[in-house]
């Protein structure tokens, strides 16, 4: 499998305290692609990539990175990959350029530190101390330290978590630019829009297992319907009746409920919406709210697990 950047079969990781973080994961990442691991917090994404990065021992399973195994080619693999961890606090007293020079010195070949700075748009901050950078700039520096060895394969664990929308978009541009010359990116995220926009292929993981695999389009398509109608009712009783009623409608490809809100996936809004509204009215059900939107990976996750991807929207994130 020389065309694969990563092959991983039956990967398992049980932490010493007994937590089964990864439970039999299969992955194959083609060279030159951007591959996303999408899943909620605690799904096992970090554990998985840290095993792929050679930072964590696996419990069992097979892992090949760039056609090599960690057991016998660790140094060679490290020369050829770049890593940005979920959380690293780089030395705050060092300047941006100094930090990149340091990381560059670890590799036999690589980019000029100035070039790496340019890639992530930090050239103006060359002499700035890391401690004075904004969150987005720090994250871009972390990515630059991963790129400075000119890696064939780049790992990014939650690269945009905690960043504002503008900083996220800047980083996405950096990653898109990097993906020339057949270089591979593996990233983890719990943002469905990030996975949708950046990745060629996505594995959705939950509780240490892969629950879906495909391109963003095919995954969204699998929900059956590109559109979602969200309806809310003034009482739980009305929601119950509407939920029961909708079970008999052929236009609804799949349905989901949270509280009094019902979500129906449909193929075509123009054909379905008037019909749905008419039927609800006939049944004497008044709407408190009506929304429609494009189906997303979020809906895929909801359909597969019955839960939302970003549970932390309800629980404040620390």
């Amino acid at each position: 499998m020389d065309d694969a950047a990563i092959v991983c079969r039956g990967l398992r990781k049980t932490y010493p305290q007994g937590v089964e973080a990864v439970r039999g994961l299969d992955l194959a990442v083609p060279r030159g692609s951007c591959f996303g691991l999408l899943g909620p917090n605690g799904a096992g994404k970090t554990t998985t990539v840290e095993i792929l990065e050679g930072l964590l021992e696996k419990t069992s399973g097979e892992v090949e990175v760039l056609g090599r195994r960690w057991e016998d080619s660790a140094r060679e693999i490290r020369e050829r990959i770049g890593v940005s961890l979920q959380e690293t606090r780089l030395a705050e007293k060092l300047q941006v350029l100094e930090t990149l020079r340091l990381f560059r010195s670890f590799y036999r070949s690589g980019l000029d530190p100035a070039e790496a700075m340019e890639l992530v748009g930090l050239s103006e901050k060359a002499k700035e101390r890391v401690g004075r950078l904004s969150g987005g700039q720090r994250q871009r520096l972390a990515v630059a330290t991963a790129m400075v060895g000119n890696p064939e394969l780049l790992f990014l664990d939650e690269p945009t978590t905690g960043l504002d929308p503008q900083a996220r978009r800047q980083l996405w541009d950096v990653l898109r630019a990097f993906r020339t010359e057949g270089r591979t990116i593996v990233l983890t995220t719990h943002y469905m829009d990030e996975a949708e926009r950046l990745c060629d292929e996505i594995a959705i993981v939950d509780r240490g297992q892969r629950i879906a695999l495909g391109t963003p389009k095919s995954l969204i398509g699998s929900v059956g319907g590109d559109h979602v109608i969200e309806v809310d009712f003034p009482s739980a009783d009305m929601s119950d009746r509407a939920e029961a009623l909708a079970k008999g409608w052929p236009q609804v490809q799949s349905a989901h409920r949270s509280g009094t809100t019902l979500e129906w996936n449909v193929r075509s809004l123009t054909e379905t919406l008037p019909d749905v509204l008419r039927r609800l009215e006939e049944a004497g059900l008044t709407l408190a709210e009506l929304r429609t939107r494009q189906a997303s990976l979020e809906d895929v996750f909801v359909k597969l697990t019955g839960r939302h991807l970003r549970e932390e929207s309800a629980i404040p994130h620390l």
Binding site: L55, I81, T88, A91
Partner: peptide, 13 residues
Amino acid sequence: VRKLLKRFRATPM
């Protein structure tokens, strides 16, 4: 503690 050692570990240093 700062995970900087882990980050270094991921390089060929």
